[in-house]
Design a protein around this nucleic acid. Structure first.
Lengths: 158, 158
DNA sequence: CTTGACCCTACAGCTGCTGTAGAGACTAGG
DNA sequence: CCTAGTCTCTACAGCAGCTGTAGGGTCAAG
């Protein structure tokens, strides 16, 4: 193991390897204030302790679950006060779960429409392509009002 | 109806209303070369014909279905030659459908994990919050390898 | 002492737009 | 004809969440 001479510090590359977060991304997180700037070596290189690795793992896991950096920022702030209520944290998680469900629903509708469109296309000239026809004319579409409803409504009233 | 004095042309606002694509977005599409620059009035304002409205509807519908601007650009290029084979168009649609299926799968895994995490959290002090615990320690997570597999692998080997 | 892997900053670019500022064009009413 | 109000113009900055580039400096091993 190369980090022998300093048992409690690793460079940014070590942190990257330990956490699975890329070096550039770690620096980015520091630049936006998501993590605190670490101490530096005499030569100016960042040195991270074990706590930093844990925090980076936390961030990575939360990102993998699709949480926004803002949500993660909030979670970090909430978790720093161990005596506070867990309700806020719970709420962030619930809101995110709801958002995921919403996205699944929408994607499923899109999937159905794409499949329908693809099945309709069995000719071999572009001029007769059903995919293009469906795309060109919403009325040929089985899903009546997919898309952002605001704009759909505005478009409807000619 | 205000567009009385010119039966075959409308301003950018009219196109926006007819297509459901915002004015700024239309200008953006022109700036990236997705649509051709239209003729201008003497005063320099854009004037669009019926064909432009159709093309914008096509783009909007494709965007609503989640296709990328690059994919749409390709579809437009392919559709301009009516004698070509429809296979490429079909392939773009199929690739997109596959991508949608992939995203649904991943989101479903995330949904399960979020639900599991939320259910585990029934205490009321942050110090004992299971949500934070799960986020902090991947080993407490039921889903073994969610997230971007490249980095996961690199992270695995300590 | 050199090599090579690593690290530094600063900034531009990615997608698909949205928002702003400050100006000019057009239309309806008086 | 003037004015008010709505629309449109360009140019550029900003959003998330990074990634990539240029042009250097640091550090440990051989």
């Amino acid at each position: 193991m190369p980090e022998r001479n300093n048992r409690r510090a690793t460079t940014i590359g070590g942190l990257a390897r330990a956490s699975g977060v890329k070096v550039t991304t770690i620096r980015y997180y520091e630049s936006i204030g998501l993590v605190d700037p670490p101490d530096r070596s005499e030569g100016g290189q960042r040195l991270y302790d074990k706590g930093a690795i844990e925090r980076m793992n936390f961030i990575r896991h939360a990102r993998d679950l699709g949480l926004s950096l803002d949500a993660i920022r909030e979670l970090i702030a909430l978790s720093s006060n161990k005596e506070w209520s867990c309700a806020k944290i719970d709420e962030i998680a619930r809101r995110h779960a709801e958002d995921i469900r919403h996205r699944i629903k929408r994607l499923k509708a899109l999937e159905r429409e794409m499949e329908r469109m693809i099945k309709a296309c069995s000719v071999d000239k572009v001029a007769d392509c059903r995919v293009l026809a469906v795309l060109a004319d919403h009325d040929l579409c089985a899903t009546p009002n997919h898309g952002r409803s605001e704009e759909s409504k505005r478009a409807k009233r000619r």
